[in-house]
């Protein structure tokens, strides 16, 4: 089980790195799916099989598919890949990389410095999660429902293109 965790973790990290470094959107999305699947395996090893399932269904399934749909709508071509290449010059990497390394070092320090580090003990059953979700977290569930509703309405509103909605900033730009 432990070995599975480390292997899955390594796969997740490598896949994510490839997502970050690839120039082609579709390739990046495929690596992203791999990364999500690896994380799902990590969930499984941590004793959360239900969450692993949700990860696969919603992240690797729904969200990635949604992004692919949008990419298809945008009708991207080979020039976009070239442009992506030109944007990702090595000099762009330096600042963010240093910052991120500092942040990572701090995170590692914080994780390691904590006293009495235990191991992951027991698996939590999906039933217990369900009981808690509809018990003390009832309000949170309702808020999530409202959030999703807001997402639907927002996406519908923003996605409409019948009437051309010109933002005032854009309008001024056009005028000048």
């Amino acid at each position: 089980m432990e070995a599975t965790f480390y292997i899955a973790g390594a796969v997740a990290v490598i896949a994510t790195l490839l997502v970050v470094m690839s120039y082609n959107l579709i390739h990046a999305l495929l690596y992203l799916v791999v990364s999500f699947l690896a994380v799902a395996v990590v969930f499984f090893t941590l004793g959360a099989p239900f969450m692993a399932a949700l990860e696969i269904i919603i992240y690797a399934g729904a969200i990635v598919v949604l992004i692919i749909f949008v990419i298809m709508m945008l009708n991207l071509t080979y020039e976009d890949v070239q442009q992506e290449k030109s944007w990702l010059k090595p000099s762009v990497w330096i600042g963010p990389a240093i910052l991120s390394l500092v942040l990572l070092a701090e995170l590692v320090y914080l994780v390691v410095a904590v006293e009495a580090p235990g191991t992951v003990s027991v698996s939590v059953e999906a039933a217990a999660v369900g009981m808690a979700l509809y018990g003390p977290y009832m309000l949170g569930v309702q808020l999530c429902g409202i959030l999703l509703m807001a997402g639907i309405v927002g996406a519908y509103h923003l996605g409409r293109q019948k009437k051309k909605i010109v933002h005032r900033f854009l309008e001024r730009r056009a005028a000048s």
Partner: peptide
């Protein structure tokens, strides 16, 4: 159930987070 250390899990999360952030 298993002996995966907690630090390992948190470190994995941290690394993934930082990669996304970069």
């Amino acid at each position: 159930m298993s002996s995966i250390p907690m630090e390992a899990g948190l470190l994995l999360a941290g690394i993934l987070f930082v990669i996304g952030m970069v």
